[in-house]
Nucleic acid binder design. Structure first.
Lengths: 221, 221
DNA sequence: TGTACATCAGTGAACGCGCGTTCACTGATGTAC
DNA sequence: TGTACATCAGTGAACGCGCGTTCACTGATGTAC
């Protein structure tokens, strides 16, 4: 090698392997041998495996948050003092998510990584993501609040997380689900198909009637 | 020890640790030392770490599938040749899920484990679950088909998985989400509260309008 | 223009460590005669 | 009732292995004078 693209080769290889098998299950030896790069190069360039994991995320999340902030700026400019409708907000978020990896041909990898960030232990990663990228989500949820004034705050919080679960679960299990769908229904599903299917479901879920209030005490485990 | 409860002690400890940190991140040494049991006992009783993982799942899924089958039997007996409404089916599933770990005080652990089964590498585990417990889900989805005749088969498939994602994501991230909700909205959320909140959302999602058909070709990554 | 030195990407080999698994062994209990 | 043997849960120590990380080193390029 002896070129600066060593860093890029490591990141390109690591993101695919992480997405396929998770962080703990992917060794630096696997990454470096697949990337045709010296084992010690990861620690030389990134310092540690943890920092490599964070760098993989940063390469997606930096452009995403930048675009998403810009898209929300435009939306707020268009609507002025009017309330931005929920559909418009969801649409904008979907578009921002789609645009980033479109350049790198790996939306699937991006979504798998997001799923892993939530489900794998890696406490350092959740903290990193929250600190670096939390503010754009705060901005987004505030706009959702204005768009759904009929929802109590707590209800909105839970519904947003319900939908986050839907999206992350769907895309991070994409390959398996796609295989089943293809076999059972003879249709090849693209990511854009899924987003088309998700739209009415997410909107309906956010606008569902409020739950019946608790009747009497209920205990839990 | 020198008692047969060694097996139980291992399972009790393993399920909690697995749920907290995942499978690869939990070593047999951690399990056995916390269970106050000899390291070699896991391999003696279970044969391998893989088999221990499967045994942890079996202890939840065996009683669950048995109960769920029985509950569906009753439902079908009640309704005879009539179609069982969707709400009733979802309610029955929720009740069956709730009943099992109520006996063991650990619904949270059960749901976290289900989440991990989907998100962690562990191919052997997905295969094991599919083989051992696939049939009850086939039965359930067939009943859902009868309850939602207006949905194209593929659409129903995707929506069921969307909702599976909602539930698994919510419960497997329960602690983190609960902490945030508690801090921001001063309300302590029980598992039963969440199920109450989930009900209208899931029903609305399943009954959402069909997506607009694809207009022109759309490519994907 | 030429020499000495600094910088920096990259390397090869080794480090100690924790892992899952194995193995020879113990000691209690049950069974056969 | 007593002895010999089999069974089985459990143990302590060691096995080899793959892991992330470290370290002394190389060799090319840039900079100072």
């Amino acid at each position: 090698m002896a070129q600066t693209d060593t860093v890029t080769r490591i990141l390109d290889t690591a993101e695919v392997l992480f997405a396929e098998r998770g962080f703990a299950e992917t060794s630096l030896r696997t990454i470096t041998s697949k990337a045709k790069v010296n084992l010690a190069a990861v620690n030389y360039h990134f310092g540690s495996k943890k920092s490599l994991i964070q760098a993989v995320f940063a390469r997606y999340l930096d452009p995403f948050t930048e675009r998403f902030h810009r898209a929300l700026d435009e939306l707020q400019a268009d609507y002025g003092d009017d309330v931005i409708p929920l559909e418009e907000l969801l649409e904008t978020m979907a578009r921002s998510v789609l645009e980033v990896p479109a350049e790198r041909n790996s939306l699937k990898v991006f979504m798998r990584l997001l799923g892993l960030a939530y489900s794998q232990a890696q406490g350092h990663l959740r903290r990193y993501i929250q600190e670096e990228y939390g503010s754009v989500f705060t901005r987004f949820t505030e706009l959702v609040r204005l768009a759904t004034p009929e929802l109590p705050d707590a209800e909105r919080f839970w519904r947003l997380h319900f939908m986050l679960g839907t999206v992350i679960f769907t895309f991070s299990g994409l390959d398996a689900l796609r295989d089943i769908a293809e076999k059972d229904y003879q249709e090849h599903v693209t990511v854009r198909d899924l987003i088309r299917r998700l739209r009415p479901v997410v909107v309906a879920a956010m606008q569902a009637p409020l739950p019946t209030p608790v009747t009497l005490a209920a205990q839990e485990a």
